[in-house]
Structures are given as structure tokens and as C-alpha cells.
Design a binder for these strands. Structure first.
Lengths: 223, 223, 223, 223
DNA sequence: CATGAATGAGCATTCATTCAT
DNA sequence: AATGAATGAATGCTCATTCAT
């Protein structure tokens, strides 16, 4: 016979009564932050509203008050995550650089950002597990990302004009390659490092991989 | 006293009486096949044992009889999936080809296999969502994949010796790039095609992407 | 197209709609009461959460809300049962009586209480079937029972001092004998009365047995 | 997310195919022995046919072949247990001893036997948890125990005739007291030793308790 | 006499969600 | 704006038992 595993939840409340904040923005931001971690960590189905609520300054009820449902919360998390990337991306000012340097910087940035933000990477990976059903509902995200391709496009155009890039470059395809190479490192780190017994997170390994990705993309783009 | 009841009208069962197979191998194979689809589609947490059982020729009980738990079933699915790739991979006979052609064929195969087997890709993506916790328990998979790297290594060695590849190639890193480029197409197809409004699954798009990945890898490997 | 369906005929629920109490204390007390009966009747493994829930004013879900698990509920039941005995025991005021009368009263009380509370007796019997694994986890019960032995001890001391009890009395051992004689009557009533074809529950039999137990203990305690 | 707890039961059998004994008596005896331990340890509801089968030299199917059901097996276990006590009890030859010594020996034997056979004690305790429903079905046990009371009766009669025992002794009641005092020590050892922090199983404690029980019964029987 | 495969009914537990205040 | 109490519908899993050979 087994010993009881779980502590019985007795009547007395554990939290000292959440002390109503009366600050909706702070409350929603708090929820969003906790939810991002939870959804990124466990995925949509794996995440638990109860656990999110418990890590929050507020109560479970507030999640429903502000976000309506688990789906609503997840979508808000996803939108916020995409918003963050794009807003930084636009701040790179790649137009000021010569095309090769611009492309280099873009690749390195993509790699570095995803490495520094595994939550974003995992949210996207999970959204794909869900067949993109939530992203399909979000006009916000889709509009947001339209200009993203323009960045690559501009670099390509300038590179071709400058005679350093091949003429048949497809910006969308190039963007995909950059993303793919950066994404895999973060998204598949567990299976990869287990199978190949290689740590991917030492500063040296990180830098080396960055160089190779940059080189791979540039070799491909050049004439 | 009640009137003698009419003999109870036997309602025909919806499933045509499971017709006990008494064939363990067929039963396990059946379960495994259905479970692979379900886990690939919904992920570990999203998958439902009940639904798997319903799509099976047998009952839910048999899943536990043969696999012990949801975890056990998932692990069996994962192992079978890895086993399938590797067994095909070894049948490629790349040794017979000159290094450049061998690398080309390897990249093309990787791309094609993953495209043709999204279940495998999604299982791996999901396993990474789970922090590789199941793969970590499977010695089978880890041993299975050891030779995988040897394939790339041999091609590299031969390519360097033949003077067509650069000397500083890192087989594991190269393998990663190949995987990354192939994987992304399948794993992130939903978010990517939604954001960039581009279908990735027309024969033309598929062939074009294959060519570009092959070229990208070969440009990188060459001197 | 189908003809518009008649409005669905609402079938009256068997239970008259649980009428949410919003009174946690009442809810927990209700659950605890029903659970005490069920655990006492069937033992820990034999008891069914479903059946407990059904006899309750609330639902199965609330059992988990307040007690966390079957184990948690059982422990709460056990603790409450012990608490009840001890609280009555302390209200006996045996100090006011001369030692022999005090011992008499204690024995008679023990006998009467256990006879009137077979649930308590059966819970203890069952807990012993479980090797005392739950009691071992409950500091509450263990502390609660410490003073119990003091009662016997005081009577012994006073009796020895008064010259009516033998000097070598061991309070714990005496307590054990009193418990043993009282306990058996309730705990083993089924096998005993079946084997010896003797009813143990007529008022006459009960009184007779009480007298004999009292006499047995007193004869043993006297010089 | 939790790590998988249970090892999946894979297809290959763990036991090397039980090697048909072709000796029904040995097989039933084996099953009975294992089942006695299991039922005594876990009680009727707690015991698992699967676990019994696993500890057996034969397979689960044989249990049903020979005993028909869990109930049938349990009843067989109970009957065998009772048979063992009574057969030893009749071998005591108490008639040869003077009444006081005979009673002493009977009490000591009862105490020692129960201490040495906790399985018997626990089976009886558990049968009482089941309201004696199985014993009620067994004529064997009930007939078996009829003579048990004769032993006490004879001693009483001889003691009264010899002028050493009081006239109003009730053999059944006396038997009950002896049983009660012996039973409690074994049946309630867990709760008792936990609450009173006293080990009951040292040789010294055992002997001391035996002396006291013997003395208690004799003091009660004497004039 | 013996067995591996198979199973229906039930069991403890969890989940996202809503009600009453 | 905020909340503790409450819940129906699953969800993974187990149990004693039987079938086909």
C-alpha cells in the first residue's frame, strides 16, 4: 500500500489574501509574464491555468476576468511575444550598413535573439504543434510580420545592385534559411545534445555556431 | 406481477465486435501506429489515450497491457520513429558516391524524408518541448543515432582528401545545419506560411527549396 | 432540412440540484461525516470516493477541493475520530473520585464509548491493517494521545498511595488491557458471535460484559 | 512535467514460462500460502490477484482454475488458517494438568500463538471488517470452532469442582477475555506503539505482557 | 492440466470554467 | 475591480475475470 502523495488542501488559505492591486495594467502584465513562461515551458495543452494563477500576484479568477479563457490568454501571450521581436528587429538600422555587413548583422541578430529568448522559440514551435490555429486568428501578428520580410528584401536588392549578391536571391526563402538555422539550435537543443553528446551552450560553442551560420548564409547569398 | 418481458432486443454494437486477434505483434503494431499519429498530431500532453484506443482495433485496456502507461506508449512510439529513419539512412550507400554527390544525396534525402514524414518531425519537436525527458531515458535511441554522425564524417573526410571540401569542416555542426534546414520546413510550416502567405507544399516550391538547401550546404562545404 | 425540433424536454435531475451552500465549514463537515461512515464500514481500500460523494450534499469534486486526495480525506477522518474520543475522555473528571471508583469509571467509559462508537473502533482496526501508515504521518493524533496515558497514571499513583492498588502497576500496560477488553467486543463481534452463537448486543449481555471487564481490571489492580 | 513512473510491460515474458508442475496439491498449497500472506497483509479488498499470482510458482489463471474467484481463494485461506489453530489447540492436552495450571497454559498458549501468527490475527481482524460475511458462509469453520469452547469449559468445571475457581464463571466470556487480551497486542500493535512510543516486540516486553495477561485471567477466575 | 491474450466496468483524480457575492 | 467556493466532463489507469488454444 502506498503512502499518500499529496498534501491535503485544508480549509485555511495559503496566500494571505491577494490584496487587491486595483491596477489593471500591472495585473495583466503580471499574468502575461507568468503565462508566457508557463506556455513556453509546457506548451498550450501542458500548461495549467491553476499553476499560472498560483505564480501570479492575483487569483485564477482574474485570468478569466481579463483574458476570458485559456485560449484567450495563450493568444495574448503569443501576440506579445511576436510584438517584442519585431519591435527590436526594426531598431537594427540595417539600412545604414553595406549589404554584406547588413546581412551578417541580421543573421547574427536573429541567432542571438532566439538564443536569448528560448521562450519565443518554444512558443512558436508549440504554435506549430497546434497547426498554427491561434496565429491564424490573430490579424495583429500577421500584419506585424509583413514588414519583416522587407528587411531581407532591401538587403538583397542593395546587394544585387552593388554586385555582391547573386541575382536569383529569393528574400522569403533566404529569410527561411536564416530562421531555420537559428531556430534549430534552440528548439531542438535537447534531442540534439543528447544524441550527439555535445553541449551547445558554452560561450565558445555559441560563438562558433554563430560564425558558421553567418558564413553559410553569406556564402549562399554571394555571387 | 409483471408480464413476461420480451427478450431484450440486442442492439448491434457500433464496432463490429473487436474480433480478438490473439496476435500480440499485430495488436502492438496497430496500437503503435495509431499512437504515432496521435502523439505526432497533439503532442504528449494533448494526446488522449481514449482517442488512441478508439482508433485501434483493440481496447484501451490493451494499451496498458502492452505499454504500461501513456509514458511507456509514447516512448515506444518515439523509439520506433527514430528506428525507422536510421534504418533507411543506412540503406543509402553513400560510400559508393564521390563526396560532393554523396553530400548532395544526403541533404536531399534528409529533406525528402522529413517532408514525407511530418510525424517524425513533429514527434521530435514535441520531445524537445518536453526537454528531451523521454529520449534521455532511451538508451536504444541514443545508441541508434551514434552511427548517424559517422555518415557525415565519412563524406567530410573523403571530400577533404579529394580536395573538394574545406579542411575545417565539423561533421556534427554540418549535420546540424542539414537537419536545421530540413526540419524547419516541416516543423514551422504553419506559422511560416501564415506570416509570409506562401504555400510551401506545391511540388514546385518543394523542389525549389530542396535545391536551395542542397546548394547552401554544398557551398558551405566546398573550399 | 429537418423539421424544427421540439424544445428538448428537460428531465428532472435525480438530486434536487445541489443548492450550493457556499459554506465551507458545513461542506467539509458533511464530507467528513459521510467519509467517516464509509471508511469505517469498508476500510481505506474498500471505500469508494464515488460512493462517499453520492451520499454527500456536494460533489466528488469538492472532496478533492478540500481534502486533496483519498489519503488526505482518510487522514482527516482518522484525526477527527481520535479528537472526539480524547475530548470526551478529558471531560470525565476522574480526579474527583477515589482511585478504585475512578478506575471503574474509566473502564466502564472506555467500554461504553467503543460500544457506542463502532466507527472509531473499526477505523483504528483498519489503520492497523494499514500498518499505522497514516497515523505515523499525523503529529496531531500522536500529541493528542499523550495525555491519555496520564489519566491512568494518576489513578494508579493515587491508588498505590491510598494503599488499595499494588505497587507494580504499569499504567501503559494497564491501559492496554482496558483497551483490549473493550476493543475486542466491538472489533471482533462478527467472528465471535458466529462461532460461539452468542449475541453480544442485547442490553443484558452488554451490561454483563461491562461488569466482568470492570471486575477483571479491578481485581488485577488491587493488592 | 513528470517523468514516467512505470516501466512499460513489453511483450517478452518475465517469468521463464512456469514449467507446468502437474501436481495439483503442490500448486494449490503454493497458491494458498502466498494468498495467506497477501490477504493478511493487505486485507481482502487491498489484496491483488495479480500480485498473488506473481509471487506464485503458477499463473493467475490457475488461481481461477482451483479457487474460482477472489472470494473463493479468500475463503480457502480463512478456513486453512482457522484449521491450523484449532488443530494445535487440541494437541495441548490440558486435561492432564490441574485446573489452574491448565488455564495458565491455555492463556499463555493463546498469547504465544497469536504473537507467532500475526497472519491469522490479521485475517480475523479483516474478516470482521467485512462483517464476517465469509465466515458466515463457511460451515467448516463454524463446526471447527465449536469444540474450542469445550476446552475452557472443562477447565472451568474442574476448577470449580476443585474449589479453586469461582462458581459463576462463564466459559464463553472467559474465552473472550483471553482472546481479547492476546489479540489486541498483535492486531493493534501499530497504533498502540505509535501513540505510546513503546516497543511491544522485545523479548522482555513480550514475556512481561504474557505474565500479566496470565495473571489477569487467573485472578479473575479464582475465588 | 495449463496458459498468454484480452476485456468491461469502475476508480481516483484533474481540468478549465462559472457562480454568488 | 475582485474573489473564494463550486462543478461537469473528462483523463489516465486498475481490477477481477474470461477467451481461445
Amino acid at each position: 500500500m502506498q503512502a499518500p502523495a499529496k498534501p491535503p488542501r485544508r480549509v485555511a488559505p495559503l496566500k494571505p489574501a491577494p490584496s487587491r492591486t486595483n491596477d489593471p495594467e500591472r495585473t495583466t502584465a503580471d499574468i502575461l509574464e507568468v503565462a508566457t513562461r508557463e506556455f513556453a515551458d509546457k506548451g498550450f495543452t501542458g500548461a495549467r491555468i491553476d499553476e499560472i494563477a498560483e505564480s501570479t500576484r492575483t487569483s485564477k479568477r482574474m485570468i478569466y476576468y481579463y483574458f476570458g479563457s485559456k485560449e484567450g490568454l495563450y493568444l495574448a501571450v503569443l501576440e506579445a511575444a511576436y510584438q517584442r521581436v519585431r519591435s527590436i528587429e526594426t531598431a537594427l538600422h540595417l539600412d545604414d550598413l553595406p549589404p554584406e555587413e547588413a546581412l551578417e548583422k541580421l543573421v547574427a541578430f536573429t541567432y542571438d535573439y532566439q538564443l536569448a529568448n528560448p521562450d519565443f522559440v518554444r512558443l512558436v514551435a508549440n504554435e506549430n504543434m497546434l497547426h498554427g490555429q491561434f496565429l491564424a486568428q490573430s490579424d495583429v501578428i500577421q500584419e506585424l510580420n509583413a514588414p519583416a520580410i522587407k528587411t531581407v528584401q532591401d538587403i538583397c536588392t542593395r546587394g544585387v545592385r552593388a554586385g555582391v549578391f547573386r541575382r536569383d536571391l529569393d528574400p522569403v526563402d533566404l529569410h527561411m534559411s536564416i530562421s531555420a538555422l537559428s531556430f534549430f539550435n534552440v528548439a531542438n537543443r535537447y534531442t540534439f545534445s543528447l544524441i550527439f553528446k555535445r553541449g551547445l551552450d558554452t560561450p565558445k560553442a555559441i560563438a562558433l555556431r554563430r560564425d558558421r551560420i553567418v558564413e553559410m548564409v553569406l556564402r549562399f547569398a554571394r555571387k
